Deep mutational scan, measured.
Amino acid sequence: SIVTKIISIVQERQNMDDGAPVKTRDIADAAGLSIYQVRLYLEQLHDVGVLEKVNAGKGVPGLWRLL
């Protein structure tokens, strides 16, 4: 499923980069989806406690990390 793919992308990127959070844009590119589509999935995963959003604010790139 797309959700499983997104989780594995975040996991893979974090492992490659010493646990650093992953940008929404990088996840979207790797999943082959638009940034808006991916954001909806990321928000859902956040709501159920799978991911945390590391930063927030208007015009700030979203950074995500697995919990």
Score class of each variant (00 low, 15 high):
residue 29 D to V: 12
residue 41 Y to P: 00
residue 40 L to E: 08
residue 66 L to K: 02
residue 18 D to G: 14
residue 10 V to Y: 01
residue 22 V to Y: 01
residue 27 I to W: 02
residue 43 E to H: 09
residue 31 A to T: 08
residue 5 K to L: 13
residue 29 D to Q: 13
residue 25 R to K: 14
residue 14 Q to F: 05
residue 42 L to Y: 01
residue 66 L to Q: 02
residue 26 D to T: 09
residue 15 N to Y: 10
residue 62 G to V: 15
residue 36 Y to H: 11
residue 14 Q to Y: 07
residue 20 A to Q: 11
residue 21 P to R: 03
residue 16 M to Q: 12
residue 46 H to V: 15
residue 65 R to V: 08
residue 18 D to S: 13
residue 23 K to G: 09
residue 52 E to W: 03
residue 63 L to T: 08
residue 47 D to N: 13
residue 35 I to K: 04
residue 9 I to Y: 13
residue 40 L to D: 05
residue 17 D to V: 11
residue 45 L to P: 00
residue 54 V to Y: 05
residue 45 L to A: 02
residue 22 V to G: 01
residue 14 Q to H: 09
residue 23 K to I: 03
residue 51 L to N: 02
residue 64 W to I: 01
residue 28 A to C: 03
residue 49 G to H: 05
residue 10 V to A: 02
residue 53 K to I: 05
residue 59 G to W: 05
residue 48 V to L: 14
residue 25 R to A: 12
residue 16 M to L: 11
residue 41 Y to F: 09
residue 38 V to R: 00
residue 10 V to D: 00
residue 58 K to L: 11
residue 58 K to M: 09
residue 50 V to Y: 05
residue 33 L to H: 01
residue 54 V to G: 01
residue 63 L to G: 15
residue 48 V to A: 15
residue 66 L to V: 11
residue 57 G to K: 09
residue 43 E to D: 08
residue 38 V to K: 00
residue 29 D to E: 13
residue 15 N to L: 13
residue 2 I to D: 04
residue 2 I to C: 09
residue 55 N to K: 09
residue 20 A to S: 08
residue 43 E to I: 07
residue 36 Y to V: 11
residue 55 N to R: 08
residue 45 L to S: 00
residue 57 G to N: 07
residue 29 D to I: 13
residue 55 N to A: 10
residue 3 V to G: 04
residue 10 V to R: 05
residue 54 V to D: 02
residue 25 R to L: 07
residue 8 S to D: 07
residue 42 L to N: 00
residue 2 I to V: 08
residue 47 D to C: 14
residue 24 T to D: 12
residue 38 V to G: 02
residue 42 L to M: 03
residue 35 I to W: 08
residue 25 R to W: 07
residue 36 Y to S: 12
residue 48 V to F: 13
residue 39 R to F: 07
residue 8 S to A: 13
residue 55 N to Q: 09
residue 49 G to Q: 04
residue 36 Y to R: 14
residue 63 L to C: 08
residue 39 R to S: 13
residue 60 V to E: 15
residue 56 A to S: 11
residue 59 G to L: 05
residue 33 L to F: 04
residue 67 L to G: 09
residue 46 H to I: 07
residue 62 G to F: 14
residue 1 S to M: 10
residue 27 I to G: 01
residue 12 E to G: 06
residue 67 L to S: 13
residue 20 A to W: 05
residue 27 I to H: 01
residue 7 I to S: 01
residue 44 Q to S: 09
residue 15 N to S: 11
residue 3 V to F: 15
residue 38 V to Y: 00
residue 19 G to D: 06
residue 13 R to G: 03
residue 1 S to C: 15
residue 42 L to R: 00
residue 30 A to Q: 08
residue 65 R to F: 09
residue 17 D to K: 13
residue 2 I to M: 12
residue 41 Y to H: 05
residue 58 K to F: 09
residue 33 L to A: 02
residue 31 A to Q: 02
residue 38 V to A: 14
residue 2 I to F: 07
residue 47 D to E: 14
residue 13 R to N: 03
residue 10 V to W: 02
residue 23 K to V: 03
residue 7 I to W: 05
residue 30 A to I: 06
residue 59 G to F: 06
residue 5 K to A: 07
residue 53 K to E: 06
residue 30 A to D: 09
residue 30 A to R: 07
residue 13 R to H: 07
residue 32 G to L: 04
residue 56 A to Y: 10
residue 22 V to E: 01
residue 27 I to Q: 15
residue 42 L to D: 00
residue 60 V to G: 15
residue 7 I to H: 02
residue 50 V to I: 14
residue 21 P to I: 04
residue 32 G to V: 03
residue 24 T to W: 02
residue 23 K to W: 05
residue 37 Q to D: 08
residue 60 V to M: 14
residue 47 D to P: 01
